[in-house]
Design a protein around this nucleic acid. Structure first.
Length: 178
DNA sequence: CCCTGATTCGC
DNA sequence: GCGAATCAGG
């Protein structure tokens, strides 16, 4: 991917708005967060404020790589991000970020004795999702409380074990459950 | 483990 | 100039 004027402009804008490098990389697409950080430095954009200078202590030089870096790396499959966003993508962080993270969500227990418990979600924002977080959407995307399950999903599955079963219902199980 | 930004240096 | 690898920290 090329750093066109447009992309650089967007980078500057998002960086100044305080988005993290990975968030910016996700919005730009086709670049890693490292690329974003590297570009930020090259552009001499101001870094993030360090309160009290805790972080930037003199860093020892990087030791020489013991093993030469492999120059042949497979092109990484860019994760599809098909989830649509409201046109207004401004996030009122200040208001909704003060969340109730470990809120347990339960459904009414059916009278049949098989209790159906929906595991608590981590209430993640779209930008927080990783390869290992459940991408089961919860709520109305047009609503402010929309979020993703975010629990750990095994291996490369897009969903956690619970939502995996909801997503891919085997016919046998679907029948059993009616 | 997840994440964050900072730095180096081969390309 | 670019950005993966690495470091350092939360």
């Amino acid at each position: 991917m090329n750093w066109t004027d447009e992309r650089v402009e967007k980078l500057k804008k998002l960086w100044s708005e305080g988005l993290s490098a990975s968030q910016i990389a996700a919005q730009l697409g086709g670049v890693s967060r490292n690329a974003v950080i590297g570009k930020v430095h090259r552009l001499n954009l101001p870094g993030r404020a360090k309160a009290g200078g805790t972080q930037t202590a003199a860093r020892p030089k990087r030791p020489a790589p013991a093993t030469p870096r492999p120059s042949n790396f497979a092109a990484r499959p860019v994760a599809a991000r098909p989830v649509a966003r409201p046109a207004d993508n401004t996030l009122p962080k200040e208001e909704i970020d003060v969340d109730f993270e470990m809120q347990a969500e339960t459904l009414p227990v059916p009278a049949n004795g098989n209790s159906v418990v929906v595991p608590m979600s981590r209430r993640l924002e779209l930008t927080q999702l990783t390869e290992r977080t459940c991408k089961w959407p919860i709520g109305d995307p047009l609503n402010d409380d929309f979020h993703f399950c975010g629990n750990e999903s095994p291996d490369n599955s897009p969903y956690c074990t619970y939502h995996q079963r909801l997503a891919y219902q085997p016919s046998a199980e679907r029948r059993r459950m009616r």
